[in-house]
């Protein structure tokens, strides 16, 4: 690992300023929250910062704050704390379940929400030091390579899948992300935070140099809202979603009044399914409706040579999750 300088940030403004300073003097800078993803990238020499701006000392950024018609979640909250919070459990089960499904207890104890949302892809090629699009190179090796875990939606020119579990949950909850940078603050809807490779092949989100994700605002759950996160992974723990589904339904008796269905593990961004949402809205969720939702979910799938299995898997997961959630009292 390359030798680096650690800078402890007192507040967000100082953090982005120190990052900008370093960059202007020709040094590579990285923000570190929990540091679990950054450390892995540094060990593999994929990221080689000269300066690490540690966000950990920033006070209050790991808190849950009610207000503004919902709840604001500080980016530094650990995944473990988020998954155990009673309010999150009660109102936003999909988020609590997504956070609880990440990696291992050790990683959830240090890994933060913002870090989970901003983590880099876990594509075999990228993590193995290949000069791919995500590493600033000019090709995606998965296209003609080992693409069993790659995208069936939204791919091209890169076919990575977004690795975050909390991202589909927050998109399904209509969350807003607060971004802080050298020139001030801005807010973007969760769905607009993530960008497809065809917009920017080297990045997974809209963060510019020296910008960071400060917090997330989730609007108050509407009456009758229920939600869940289902994740298919290759073993019971400690790996990324092969396919996951974040589903939020607003139910009125047996009838669905509003729906959000967002997939993880199948696209370079959290993959929202507006047609499935429209199908479910106004319907009694029967087995037949759920089956149609599953079929519709994969209507636009474009599998690669080795990930065709994700199509029936996604179909089944959407059907099963929608049905199970609708049946919950």
């Amino acid at each position: 690992m390359k030798t680096f300088t650690n800078v402890n940030a007192r507040d967000l403004r100082q953090a982005v300023a120190r990052s900008a300073d370093a960059r202007q003097s020709g040094q590579a800078a990285s923000f570190a929250g929990g540091g679990s993803d950054l450390l892995a990238l540094m060990k593999e020499r994929i990221v080689r910062p000269d300066v690490i701006v540690s966000l950990k000392p920033i006070k209050g950024l790991d808190q849950l704050t009610p207000g503004g018609g919902g709840i604001t979640i500080g980016g530094l909250i650990t995944l473990d704390a988020l998954s155990r919070d009673a309010r999150i459990h009660r109102q936003y089960a999909v988020l609590a379940e997504a956070a609880a499904s990440v990696a291992t207890p050790q990683i959830r104890n240090v890994g933060t929400l913002a870090g989970n949302l901003c983590q880099r892809p876990w594509c075999w090629y990228y993590r193995n030091g290949f000069p791919c699009l995500k590493a600033g190179g000019s090709q995606c090796f998965s296209v003609s390579g080992e693409n069993q875990f790659h995208a069936i939606f939204g791919g091209g020119p890169s076919y990575i899948v977004h690795p975050s579990d909390t991202a589909p949950a927050l998109v399904a909850l209509d969350a807003t992300f607060r971004i802080v940078g050298p020139s001030g603050e801005r807010e973007v809807p969760a769905a607009d935070f993530f960008v497809l490779p065809r917009q920017n092949a080297a990045a997974e989100n809209v963060l510019a140099n020296d910008e960071l994700l400060a917090s997330v605002h989730v609007p108050t759950a509407a009456g009758g809202m229920r939600s869940m996160y289902e994740k298919v992974l290759d073993r019971e723990a400690w790996t990324h979603a092969v396919v996951s589904a974040a589903v939020v339904l607003r139910m009125d008796g047996q009838t669905c009044r509003d729906a959000r269905v967002v997939l993880g593990g199948v696209a370079p961004i959290p993959w929202r399914l507006p047609e499935v949402e429209r199908l479910l809205t106004g319907q009694r969720i029967t087995e037949e409706v759920a089956a149609r939702a599953g079929e519709l979910a994969v209507a636009g799938a474009r599998p690669l040579a080795k990930n065709g299995y994700k199509v029936p898997l996604t179909n089944a997961l959407v059907r099963r999750t929608v049905l199970e959630l609708a049946r919950r009292a």
Binding site: W122, W124, R127, N128, G145, E146, T239, H240
Partner: peptide, 8 residues
Amino acid sequence: MANCQLTN
């Protein structure tokens, strides 16, 4: 070996 990491 293409999946030479513990995550893979």
